[in-house]
Amino acid sequence: MGLFSSGFSGRRRPDTPGLPPGQYLTESFPVLSAGPTPRVTHEEWQFTIETEDGLQHRWSWDELMALPIADVTTDIHCVTSWSKFGTGWRGVSLDTLFDGIETSAGFTMAYSYGGYTTNVPLADLMGGKAWVAFEFDGKPLEPEHGGPARLLVPHLYFWKSAKWVRGIRMMENDEPGFWEQNGYHMYGDPWREQRYW
């Protein structure tokens, strides 16, 4: 429990179950990214999963669209303290993409157009917990929010949901991605407030 700030009453929403500690609810969709927004066309877009033995599995945009597509409604939590409830997405489950891929590595590095990277344990991408998402709120995902496609791993802080995702590389050991090298937590569980080191 915090220290009392005299004269602060806040704009409380009565009883917000589902809100992790230190988060506030927003209706808007703020943007956190480290640099300019990359612009990637569907024609040039590709998604690659690279295993520890160097094998590459690759999908074009059309190949991705031909896979089973999931509708996902989920809460999202950004490390800069906003949360948004009940956001609607469409995308392909990572279970589908990993189907038939042989790997014994336990960690992954997601990488993006524009050079962004973020590390996620493989277990957090499996079991209906992660998607390559290309629609938000019924519309194609806008570039500012990671379009054409972003990773969606909503049970972790949102910087783990790499925008402009281009691929996933399997790793034997957990290594820090971009924000993780710049002070953010290796895992990023909002319920345990794993924001910074």
């Binding site: 009392f4 700030s5 602060f8 230190g22 506030y24």
Partner: peptide, 11 residues
């Protein structure tokens, strides 16, 4: 972080 008298916080 601000904390109201009833424990409500905003960051």
């Amino acid at each position: 972080r601000l904390t109201a008298e009833d424990g409500y916080t905003a960051v």
